[in-house]
Design a protein around this nucleic acid. Structure first.
Lengths: 335, 335
DNA sequence: CTGTTAGCGCTTTCAG
DNA sequence: CTGAAAGCGCTAACAG
């Protein structure tokens, strides 16, 4: 079922039918009605590829994220998809699995107009952003969410990484905990660097020396991460608390503590960035910093659509920072 | 950058370049090399819409799911996306938010060849499947995963709903618990009905009368769900255990128990279907039945691609059933 | 208000 | 082995 067939059924020309369907002012109300009725009757829907080809518009955006099965990202996708659906856009999804190479390959697929815009949260081992610059050159609107890079000037929607890490550390210090280790995820992502800085800042403010050996850089390799964290926990001066930069690391810590027979929170406290919706069934010993993930997704999509619609000409440096929330459950208050 | 420009650069015809890029046997090795080198140099990528239009193929599949931010579905998407990416396919994602109307609207977008195939997990209030029959008529391959309908004959990838529910109930009974209520999610989804049947079957086998009032049908309305469950828990003959058909209901139970000051698991046990990856930090009182969500997503994608590639002619009744796992933590063993 | 026609960028048949 | 040309289904400029 295409325009040609439909127009034949109606004894009208293709262009008249096309215009009638797009509610053009050139067409009389009566023919419009007739055409639209027939289209519905025959279940006609325009071929999107033909339209896209003509219009150089796809009504589609791409989301590039490290991992879908992640409490933060799945919520962010939810927000973005909801907004896109309201706008009548389609959403393509691509996982990088924290692999910078995959990220580059995915960016290549999108160079040729497949999508009208891209939302991306960088893989933790992405260091250069050539692939993003290429997209930028082709004038494909691009927005960072959560994990951004400073090496390219793009609008971004992030959270108060410095402040929230600072707040988390101060919370521990106020509860008498001073020996705190930090588990970072990358040396190139602002999300990790800023949180490290917030951690260091809070220690300094409280006159606690920030020992570099207490900052552990983790990556996609679970085995080596595990070893680094174990090392931290088995040395003579074991920290009193672990601050995990992302939820996955907190979970890893729980596993390690179980192996090492360390009781949480009596032997060691854990605090983590986390979007576990299931606080109700959580072990109450996990204090979390929760990012407004859904809102981040929606907000990033909203900026992306502004760029696509050219509503704002120069949003190059738009930079939305949302607030995270410290959620304290029972036991960190103890001591 | 399109074929025309590229061919001009090379002093070759458009068709020669096109064939060279698709590695056609009609073209000499030397020209192929020259063309491919130039294409890489100029970062040429075929316009997907023009190709799709010509080929009547989009190399894209759609995933229709109730909710992305859900431990089961996000894992299933992960599996499907991973497989699709390996196959060089793109993945469009659509949330229905458990709204049958939205589901129908989404199906309409896909009638016109936008995708080569569709994976769907039904919304819990979907009763008729006209929208799926329409897709079927247009010969768009379709696969159910997890939440299927019996009203249309399509390949499906599900889990052993009857058996796993049976196993869960028997686990409780073996631990001396006989008064068990079941929280279902739909009267039209096999996933819910089969689990109910498994529950009833296990009760019967153990000579426990299956009281219909102990089966509560929940839906998308959290408020009314809450009230129904509360009613169940405040009546004189309170059940000893709640069996939640999906994770969200288990979480709701935890909230309600907190409100009602019921201790879990001493006052009441909870058992639930759940894909919380974070068992390590779970409150140990939740016994779960865990579905192989990632594998379900991959398997469904794999069947879908077989249909797309017409490898198997008549997969109409392909019906893969994967096994779920009962994960018992500490406290249900007690008593 | 309606119809004719060119052309989006690609693939593929057919001719050379 | 290479090139010319038709046409996928749609939109829109232009003519009537």
């Amino acid at each position: 079922m295409n325009l040609k067939q439909l127009s034949k059924e109606l004894n009208l020309s293709i262009s008249t039918v096309s215009k009638a369907l797009s509610d053009s002012s050139e067409i009389s109300a009566t023919t419009k009605k007739k055409v639209q009725a027939k289209a519905k009757e025959l279940n006609y829907h325009a071929n999107p590829f033909a339209s896209n080809l003509r219009n150089k518009k796809s009504k589609t955006i791409a989301l590039i994220i490290p991992e879908i099965a992640n409490n933060f990202f799945s919520l962010a996708i939810n927000g973005a998809e909801s907004f896109a659906q309201e706008k009548g856009y389609h959403v393509l999804i691509y996982q990088t699995n924290e692999d910078a190479q995959k990220e580059k390959a995915i960016a290549k697929y999108l160079l040729n107009g497949r999508v009208d815009g891209v939302m991306i949260s960088l893989s933790n081992n992405t260091t250069d952003v050539k692939h993003l610059k290429e997209l930028q050159q082709r004038e494909i609107p691009l927005v960072f969410f959560d994990r951004a890079s400073e090496k390219i000037d793009l609008p971004k929607v992030t959270t108060d990484d410095y402040d929230s890490a600072f707040m988390g550390v101060e919370h521990l210090i106020k509860n008498g905990i001073r020996e705190i280790a930090f588990l970072a995820i990358s040396k190139s992502l602002s999300i990790s660097n800023d949180r490290v800085q917030g951690y260091v800042g809070a220690l300094k403010k409280n006159k606690i020396t920030a020992d570099k050996k207490r900052i552990v850089f983790c990556d996609g390799n679970v085995i080596s991460n595990k070893n680094s964290i174990k090392k931290l926990l088995t040395q003579k001066s074991r920290p009193e608390a672990l601050f995990a930069c992302v939820e996955e690391l907190a979970i890893l810590c729980y596993e390690i503590c179980e192996e090492l027979k360390l009781k949480i929170p009596s032997d060691i406290k854990i605090i983590s960035y986390s979007n576990l919706k299931t606080a109700a069934i959580l072990n109450p010993s996990l204090t979390t910093i929760t990012q407004p993930a859904y809102e981040i997704g929606r907000e990033a999509a909203s900026i992306l659509f502004k760029l696509i619609d050219r509503e704002s000409v120069n949003v190059g440096d738009e930079n939305i920072v949302l607030k995270s929330t410290l959620i304290v459950r029972n036991s960190t208050k103890v001591k």
